[in-house]
Every structure is written in structure tokens, then in C-alpha cells.
Design a protein around this nucleic acid. Structure first.
Lengths: 215, 215
DNA sequence: TTTTGTGAATTGCTTCACAGCA
DNA sequence: TGCTGTGAAGCAATTCACAAAA
């Protein structure tokens, strides 16, 4: 596939948004869309969209726009989500269990197929909508990762356990970690990390609204 | 307070990380820290840290570094988290309930003090660690927002209900929205939004690890 | 006419490098 | 010496503007 090495990370983030919106547009039976239309919905300039797509070659037809079904397929291919990926969950606390019952993952090609937790009381319990996932001891991780070709790990453990849990994931062969831990975690260069710290999100918002209108 | 208007958003994000790390350092009883030390832990250059802080005036002492307790206080003031803020939760499904039991918010100065949901079966039920929060009908929102001076709203509803719910929040007087809905939401210019789409996070990671090592 | 794809211009962010201070 | 604060330089990302295609 035509995969340039220097795609800005902000552009990648936007490509995900394009795909999300195009799937909505596709469901509404529109066959084509222009960069201007797409940008209007997402709050992004049309030029920005064209530049982002230009990293991956020709997409649209001048005077017409982009053919929606083709573009959905192309974006999925680019993002590597054209087939379902197996995901593991580390941490079966409140947040972990909520993520398990979150249907959005499956809908977009990610399926949680294994759950791990250090807590003895949790190991062996059955989770998931169909109670079909047994919580496993982290020592089983390498075996399961190999057997089910798992590349993604979701980290939903307390900050105090985050680095140790991450090391386990990496050692087991996971290639990408989505972390909800409220701390920085260290990984080897070839492992990708995305950190979602919910408090940090609120703090950013706090800054944005402070000083504008006093309270 | 000394609040410049042109602070880059990436810088604000990093300020939150500095605060988080400084609190950890403070708990470990270190009294001072240099930009170099802090940067090493967070994977950020020392110059970057000094530039970010420079937006808000003088912080440190040449030859010594930054005094940790002072800097924690100053960053909290800058971010507007020097006192606890009341937060409302819209949506009492799986994700919403997990967020309710998440202790990280309280720890960092955000407290969920009201829960709303459209679903009749949920209204009136008691949630939270102490079962002290009654799920309310969204029509009660303006009154509660006013009474409890709520500026933050967490949106944990399905995508299909997201825009309508957002409009309710904004109408009720909420100034900042942390959305978990898998779609773009429209708000007036003076309302801040931060969108955490979990699938988009995984898709970004998917792109990052695709094409590096084949699968 | 509409809309893409793209070099050029611009804006914004990060890194560099060093004067000044402890 | 060690470290901050900061102008200058360099780099990256976005926007502009227009030739080419439908």
C-alpha cells in the first residue's frame, strides 16, 4: 500500500474523523461528498481535508467530489481497520467493565477478546454482555496474545499499577496501548501509546473557560 | 491573574501533565525540580517546559530550578483547579456509571454532583459509591446548574442522542463539555468542548503500527 | 461551473543558544 | 558551575490561490 512515512499526527487524527463522518453520510445514502461539505460538518477547512488526503494519492474527481463508498474503503485500508482486530483489556475494575460493555469498539472493528487482572478475587469471574469472557491472570497473557494475534491492549488499571502492567503488555507482544492511567508510561520505541487521562481533559477545559467569564 | 490570551493548546495540555507530575514529585518530598529533570520523566524537552511556563511569568530560580509546592499552587491557579468544581453527568448508562465511580476526578478537584438521563426507567434511581445521587430528568437541569454553580458537563450518551443532549447542557448554562459520544457536536463559540472518542483513539494507534511490521 | 490537487505563502510551534542570575 | 528566561532560528502545519479536470 502507498504509505508515506511523514504523515503528521494531527492529520491521522482527522482521517479518523473523516472516516467516521463518511460512514454516517454513507448510511444516509449519499453517493458523493465534496471536501467543502465534509469540512462544514466537521468544522475543518476544505483545503485541510484535501491536503490530508493528498498524503495517500488521488481520491476524488474534480467538479464532482469524493465517491463515498470508495473513500470509506480506502480510509479503512489506510488506517488498518479494514478487518476486525483483536484487543485485550488489562484491568477489570469499574472502568474496564464499562469498556467491555461499550459497543462502539465492535462497531468500528475492534473486539475485546481477553481480559486480565491482577486481583485474585476477580480472576475466573465471567464478564461481558454474554458472560463469555473469563478474567485471566496476567501470566497467561503471552500465550493468549500469540494465539489470538492480539496487537492492541487497553490499560484500565490504577496509576500505581500502570507501569508494571504496561511492561507485561509489551513483554507479551502487544504493539499498541490505549492507556486510561493518570500517569506517563514508558514503552519501547516500536510500541505506540495513546493516553486518555480524563482529569487532564477536564483541566484543559477548565483553563479554556477560566478568565473568559469570571465565576 | 496574569492570563495571556494566546497560549497554544498543546502548551495547555502539557501544563496539565506538569501539574500531574509535580504532584507526584511533591508527594515524594522533593522540594525543587529543574526543567531538565521534569522533562526527562515526561519525555519533553527542557526548553519546551520553560517556554510553556514563560507564558505565565517568572516561575523558577536560575541555578536552582522550580520550587515544587509553589509551582503546584501556581499551576492549579492557572488551570483554574485551585478549588473544587462541580460537574454534572448526562447519561447514566454503563460508561456514565463507571465515570461516577472513578475516583480520579475528585482527586483532582472535579466532583460529579448531579446525574441526568432521558430514560424513564433510570430516573429516580440512586447511583454513586454512597448511593447519594438520584438520577434526574433533564428538565431539572437549568435549576440544578444554577443552584450548584455547575460549569462542567460530562456527556456519556449514545451518538444518536448526543447533539440533543448537548443543546440541553448548553441551554442550562454549562460552559464546558467533555464528550464521549462518537460524533461531532455543535456548540456556541463561548462553550468549550473536548471530545474523547475511544474508537478514534484505537484507529490512530492502528495507523501508527500498520506498515511498520506486517501482520 | 464546480471541485480537486498542489506549489507558495503564511502562521504557529518547537528547538537552539546564550545572557543573566544564584 | 547550574539553571532560568528569552530572542532568534528552524521546522512543521495550515491556509491561500490557482491550474487542470469533469
Amino acid at each position: 500500500m502507498n504509505r508515506p512515512d511523514n504523515v503528521p499526527l494531527p492529520a491521522v487524527r482527522r482521517l479518523c474523523l473523516y472516516l467516521r463522518q463518511l460512514e454516517i453520510i454513507h448510511a444516509a445514502d449519499s453517493q458523493t461528498v465534496s471536501s467543502k461539505q465534509l469540512g462544514a460538518v466537521l468544522g475543518i477547512s476544505d483545503a485541510q481535508i484535501r491536503k490530508d488526503l493528498a498524503h495517500f494519492g488521488q481520491f476524488g474527481q474534480p467538479g464532482v467530489g469524493y465517491r463515498v463508498p470508495e473513500m470509506v474503503a480506502r480510509l479503512r485500508e489506510i488506517l488498518g481497520t479494514d478487518r476486525t482486530a483483536n484487543v485485550l483489556l488489562m484491568g477489570a475494575g469499574n472502568l474496564g467493565r464499562a469498556l467491555l460493555s461499550y459497543k462502539g469498539f465492535t462497531k468500528r472493528g475492534f473486539e475485546i477478546v481477553a481480559v486480565f487482572d491482577n486481583h485474585p478475587a476477580l480472576i475466573g469471574t465471567l464478564l461481558g454482555a454474554d458472560r463469555d469472557l473469563r478474567v485471566r491472570h496476567p501470566d497467561e497473557m503471552p500465550e493468549i496474545v500469540e494465539a489470538r494475534s492480539i496487537r492492541f491492549g487497553i490499560l484500565a488499571v490504577p496509576g500505581s499499577a500502570a507501569q508494571q502492567a504496561t511492561d507485561k503488555l509489551v513483554e507479551a507482544g502487544v504493539r499498541a496501548v490505549l492507556s486510561f492511567a493518570p500517569c506517563t508510561i514508558k514503552v519501547p520505541q516500536d510500541v505506540a501509546v495513546s493516553s486518555v487521562d480524563l482529569s487532564v481533559q477536564l483541566e484543559q477545559l477548565s483553563f479554556q473557560i477560566s478568565g473568559v467569564a469570571p465565576m
